[in-house]
């Protein structure tokens, strides 16, 4: 298993958000996280990514537990994970190519990363290849702000590729996109998992997207996992229990 997480717990000022989450994602697999608002889906990804510090639990990349690593080794292990955000988080005024190059900053000396003009030529070539893999090589020199939402999210995926990540964590990657763009981005994530062997974990708000694109789906309910099944085996019953909290709030 490329990414394996055990006993993840987190509480924010007394309120328990995650009460022991265990899961793993294999290379070449797209796993979807489903759950109502506040079920802990995003917190799970943010804890794995190290943006939020978990209270307890262990995270292993390719068999190496992160808390057994230190300094440079820990940094290198962390860089094998890249995050895709709901709000995309690119710099709109910069070109697609410059934004993708920024994924490689950890490999570029600080002096050569002060402005895109100084980025090494091989990094720029690699960034262009990454844009080609998401189908946007022809838009490399367009400002990101001029691209559509779906194209922007694909540029963000290319940035993750340029980071040379083999684990991609996507936090509601398609929530801000129109249905067609959402399908495109999901198809791209599945394609990258299946043909390039990435381990992709995506938090999704739309169960139908998850069941159609993900190899496996994990249901979270109030910080605990209710199912971890191949997407083909997830039933309406499963989903019904999962989204009960949302309906109670609405009622």
């Amino acid at each position: 298993m490329l990414l394996s997480v055990q006993g993840l717990r987190k509480s924010f000022s007394g309120r328990t958000v995650l009460q022991g989450v265990d899961f793993s994602v294999a290379a070449g697999e797209l796993v979807a996280f489903l759950g109502a608002n506040g079920s802990g889906k995003s917190t799970t990804l943010r804890c794995v990514m190290g943006i939020t510090a978990p209270d307890s639990g262990s995270i292993s990349i390719d068999g190496a537990a992160l808390d057994s690593l230190q300094g440079r080794e820990l940094q290198q292990a962390r860089q094998r994970m890249a995050m895709i955000f709901q709000k995309i988080h690119l710099v709109p005024r910069r070109t697609a190519l410059d934004n993708v190059c920024a994924g490689a900053l950890a490999r570029i000396p600080t002096a050569r990363s002060l402005t895109p003009m100084l980025f090494p030529a091989d990094v720029q070539q690699e960034a262009l290849d990454c844009l080609d893999r998401v189908g946007l090589a022809d838009r490399a020199f367009d400002r990101v702000g001029r691209l559509s939402g779906g194209q922007q999210q694909r540029v963000a995926v290319a940035r993750a590729l340029c980071q040379r990540a083999d684990v991609v964590l996507a936090d509601e990657p398609v929530s801000a996109l129109d249905p067609h763009a959402a399908e495109q981005v999901m198809a791209l994530l599945r394609e990258l998992a299946h043909s390039e062997g990435l381990a992709v974990a995506a938090v999704l708000h739309q169960p139908d997207l998850a069941l159609r694109y993900a190899d496996r789906s994990i249901g979270l309910l109030q910080g605990s996992m209710t199912f971890d099944l191949p997407s083909t085996e997830v039933t309406a019953q499963h989903l019904d229990t999962l989204y009960a909290p949302d309906r109670n709030i609405a009622a």
Partner: peptide
């Protein structure tokens, strides 16, 4: 965007500049 670059392993100066 700054947080995105931090998770990608960029240092503080790189985050600010890019």
């Amino acid at each position: 965007p700054q947080e995105a670059l931090r998770t990608a392993g960029a240092n503080r100066i790189q985050q600010v500049a890019n």
